[in-house]
Each structure stands twice: as structure tokens, then as C-alpha cells.
Design a protein around this nucleic acid. Structure first.
Lengths: 307, 307
DNA sequence: AGTACCGTGAAGCAACGCTACATCGAGGAG
DNA sequence: CTCCTCGATGTAGCGTTGCTTCACGGTACT
């Protein structure tokens, strides 16, 4: 009975089918099937039963899964404790980033870590918020960037902790030649404009619609584009206005003006990590570095505004 | 970081040296060294440090060992729980027997189990009491027969449970033509005889000496022999008298008489097993079968005495 | 200095774990 | 009912792992 087998069993229990578990863990279905077969052979207890063309856990299998979760987190807790007394920041950390976060936070994070902890390797992957949280829980990802919108609070799951990095306030972005010239404006002032927004299925796009509705109008979304640099270009070209979070505005292109919203709404940028690995020196280093990066960013923005 | 690596690390921590751990787990030292090397490589944390020609755990290693114990028992608890809901008695159980127990209890145990649970395989090994307890704790042995003498109480260890099977009373065994003809006698009556006894280093031989001393004399041990059938033969041949536990007397040879001791002393026959596996159906089956065997044995002896 | 012994590394070999591919069997669509 | 899809599972093959054997370096004990 190996750790690997328990991991696979747990994943099958979670996903429901072997193919899904295989995909989630990055194996072929055959590998999962063989490992679980080996588990059944070594213990002499049937763990799966075929039902139709699917597979289902037996009572014994469910009982094993119940313990497997604790076991896997205990294992990681053990490793964390060990690394903690060793105290060295090294090894490799798997990070997942979310689109708009990548440019603004990831790059300075990597720069800072390269200086402070040269023995720490960071590998990154791009994932949506929900898959990222699943990957964190499964152990594929160590640290995930996530977003929390007021209208779509992030799902919580057992064994995963979060820390908030910053409150990312949305601003109204208009073309240079827009009639609105004040430093701030109410959303109602642009109720009849055409909007450029990320796709509504994403939480970012959803946030825009929710904000407009609570301001009393349904936005006319003329263009659905998922990355903020392009959105800003479209605004500059006069295709419409956009509601863009601060992180999308660190280097605004020419031709646009940023206008504060009078009753602003925001999202919180968070990182998620397993509670069992929260105190790993490497994870602590990433977290600390990120907080420092965010501090720099806020200071920089403050300084820029002052100038 | 695998279970195997944790097991090996724990054994090294327990035994102090790599060779000892290797011997205890049935591997070569090289295997242990390589596995622990792999552990250090995969975690990036040094677990061992060379000191002289030995090796010592680092702080990180000790921390890991602290968790490893819990992890391994959790793993077994998981397996136990799973098998328990499955409810089937199958698989293989490793049993260790102690010399005198083997004939009397092991054979009827195997016979009974073969009938009641044909899918259960029993493998046996002969081990002294202390090594057996260690093997139980280490997981090499599932069920160990052990003896508990009043003068040498069995060492207790964490995670290992015991159940007493029977109180095994010592009797005096004399040749047929011995002057003692009564059904019972005091130890003092044989103070000046020559004794045949198991070696004093064993707890059985020690028990004999302690009993004689508390009766006020130092026994003259003329022959040190470690198995009871031979001892009985020697008694029959007139080489001396012996103090023999009941289990050594189920089939006494010709030429000897069994005499009860007036202030009898005894040992308790126990079985030891890991607490985490106490409720495994297979372990439960062995335990239950043994209790039944002992019941039969006592009944049979009672019946024999009555006849 | 000699010797016994512990830990480690290199070579070799069996077993393991994975992928790719084929097969079986169960639904679902026509 | 038949075709087709899809999930699970075997089989062959290949790279890797994990062990043993053997040899070596280094330390302590005599």
C-alpha cells in the first residue's frame, strides 16, 4: 500500500471516474487502473466495483479514502516540519497564476526571489481560479493566485488556506477625448456607453455586469476580450469604455484616461496554499516576497500619483 | 518521500546505525543508505550527518522521525479500518512463536484456522520474546507469542497491545523411581537435587532460579538444555529433576512423574500485536481462534485429570 | 601499524510503473 | 436493432527504481 496508490484512489473518489482522475493527476487511465489493481491485490480487499461502464468505490474503498486524506496531509505536515527545522529556502515551488496577475505580480516576484533565495526554483502554470484551487488541494500546485469578487466569493475548501495580498479597485477607463474630464465619476454617467469587458463567464466580466446593475443599468457590452492590455488598446481606439482593476492599469497605454469611480467596487487578490505546507520555508519565502512586492507596488503607485 | 523511506529512517533512528537498521528490516546497509540518500535528494534537506564511523540524525531528521511514527501507524489504522468494513478474513499474517509454545498452541491454532478461515495464510518464525516485540512494533510480525514472568515483566512499548491467553503453572518433574511419591511437594524438598533447566539467560531458566531462591536455596543446575521435550527425557533418564511449565507437559514421556508445587509459580502466555491492527479481521480471527484453542486445551487437561 | 567495522559508491539484475495500443462491455443515437 | 462512443482494463514494451554484490575510504580500537 503506497502513498501513490492512496493519492490515486482519493482522486478517483473525488472525480468519480478513472479517466478524470488520470487526467487530473497527469497519467493515463491505464496507470490508475493498474495501481488500484495492485492496491486491491496487496490488501486483498476490493476497492472499486464496476457499475455500468463506470466504476464506484466500495464501502471499504470509501473508508480507505476517508483515512487517505488525513494521511496525505500528515505526510505533507511532516515534510513541512522537517524543512522548517532545517530552515533553508530551497527546492521548487509550483505556482499557478491568473491572467491579469501574471504580468504585474509574477515578474517582480520572480526577480525578488532570484535575489533573496537563489536556491529556490519557481515553476509556473496558468490556471483559472477554480481549477487552481483544486490543484492546490490535490498537491499539484503549491501556491495559487486567486481572485475573490464580492459577487462571486471564492469557494473555500478544507486544508487550503488563503492570504489576501491587496484590494484591487476597479477604475473607469475612457478615451483621451472623452467628455468626462473630472477625476472621478459615477457609473451612471456611462450608462449609455458601449462597454469593453472580459467574457461574462469569467468572474472579472461578471463583476462588471454586477456593478453596472447595482448602479441601475444593464451595460451594453460591445466587445468581449479577456486580457486587459488589449481592452485598454480598444478603449484608446474609441471602441468604448471599460472597467479595469488597478492591476490592469500599472502601465496604461497612450490615449486613455483613468477615472476613479465614485462608489468603487473591487476584487481581492489572494494566494492559496495548503495549510499543511503553510509554514514550509519555501512557501513562507514566496508569501513574504509577494507581500513585499505588493508593498512596493502600492508605494510606487502612491509616488506616481504624487508626482 | 515514500513510506519505505520513512520506515527506514525510523529504523535507523531506533537502532542508531545503518547496519543495525538494515539487519532489522532484512536489507543490506547499501539499500538503506541509498534510500535515505534519495530522501535527502528529493527533499533537499540533510537527514543524516556522519559522525566518526557512525551516523546520526540531524535535527530535521529527528523532526521527520517524530512524524513518521504517527504516519506509519495511521497507515496501518487506515488499512485496518478498510479491512474491517470489508469484513473478510483473508490475507497473510506473520506470526512469531516462542520455543515451548510452538508445539502446544501453534499446531492446533493452524488446524483450527485452516477449517474456519481457509483464505487466511499464516507464516511463522521463531523469535525470542524481546526481538519478537521489536518485530511487532516494526511491522515485520503481526502477532507474536510472548511470555511474561513475574520476575521479568515483559517490556511494554507504545503502539503494541497484548492479550493474555493462559496462566502457565510450573510443576516439578521427577523420575518414576523418585522418593517423592506425593501428588504435591514443596520446592524445599528438592533443594539438594541436581536440576535440569533452560539456560539462565532465557527468561524460563531465570524463572527457575528465582523460584528456588525465594524457596531459600540456590539450585544446582547440572544441565542447561533449551527445549522441554529433551529436558523431560533427561529427567526420565535420572539426570535430575526439572521445573516445567504446563505447556511443556501436555504429552509427558514415560519414566517421569509430574508433581504439583505447593506454592506454585507461573508465567503468563500472551500474544502481542500492534494496536493499530488489533481490529483487523485477520488478527481478530487469530486471536479468537487462539482463545478457543486454549479453552479446548484447559478443558482437555481437566478431563484428563478427571479420568 | 594492524584490524575490525561502518557507511557509501558502482555495476548488475529483477521488479515496478508508466505509455501506447487493443479489447471488452455498456449506454445512447439513429 | 445497429452503429458508435466512451470508460475500464488487459498486454507488450521501455525506462526507472530498488535491491544485492562487491569494492573502497575512513574511523576507532588494540
Amino acid at each position: 500500500m503506497s502513498i501513490q496508490q492512496l493519492r490515486m484512489l482519493r482522486e478517483v473518489a473525488l472525480r468519480g471516474t478513472i479517466v478524470a482522475a488520470a487526467q487530473s493527476l497527469g497519467y493515463t487511465p491505464s496507470a490508475i487502473s493498474q495501481q488500484l489493481g495492485g492496491l486491491e491485490r496487496s490488501t486483498g480487499v476490493a476497492v472499486l466495483e464496476r457499475v455500468g461502464r463506470n466504476v464506484r468505490l466500495t464501502d471499504a474503498g470509501r473508508e480507505l479514502v476517508r483515512h487517505a486524506g488525513d494521511l496525505l496531509t500528515s505526510l505533507e505536515a511532516a515534510r513541512t516540519a522537517m524543512e522548517q527545522v532545517a530552515g533553508e529556502v530551497k527546492g521548487t515551488i509550483e505556482v499557478s497564476v491568473y491572467e491579469s496577475v501574471a504580468v504585474t505580480l509574477l515578474v517582480p516576484l520572480l526577480e525578488r526571489l532570484a535575489v533573496d533565495h537563489p536556491d529556490l526554483r519557481i515553476r509556473t502554470r496558468q490556471l483559472e481560479v477554480e481549477p487552481a484551487l483544486e490543484a492546490v488541494a490535490a498537491g499539484t500546485i503549491d501556491v495559487a493566485f486567486t481572485l475573490d469578487y464580492a459577487h462571486a466569493p471564492m469557494s473555500q475548501r478544507a486544508g487550503v488556506s488563503c492570504t489576501s495580498l491587496l484590494e484591487d479597485v476597479f477604475c473607469l477607463v475612457v478615451p483621451d477625448d472623452d467628455p468626462i474630464t473630472s477625476a472621478s465619476a459615477s457609473l451612471e454617467a456611462v450608462a449609455d456607453r458601449r462597454f469593453i469587458s472580459p467574457s461574462l463567464s469569467s468572474s472579472c466580466g461578471g463583476g462588471v455586469v454586477v456593478a453596472c446593475r447595482s448602479a441601475g443599468f444593464e451595460p451594453d457590452i460591445a466587445h468581449q476580450i479577456d486580457d486587459y492590455p488589449t481592452i485598454l488598446r480598444l478603449v484608446a481606439a474609441g471602441a468604448g469604455v471599460a472597467l479595469v482593476p488597478g492591476l490592469g492599469l500599472v502601465t496604461p497605454p497612450r490615449g486613455v484616461r483613468v477615472v476613479a469611480i465614485e462608489r468603487p467596487f473591487s476584487r481581492t487578490i489572494q494566494i492559496a496554499y495548503r495549510t499543511a505546507s503553510a509554514e514550509r520555508p519555501a512557501v513562507v519565502a514566496v508569501r513574504d516576497a509577494l507581500v513585499a512586492v505588493v508593498d512596493d507596488l502600492v508605494d510606487g503607485r502612491g509616488a506616481a500619483l504624487a508626482a
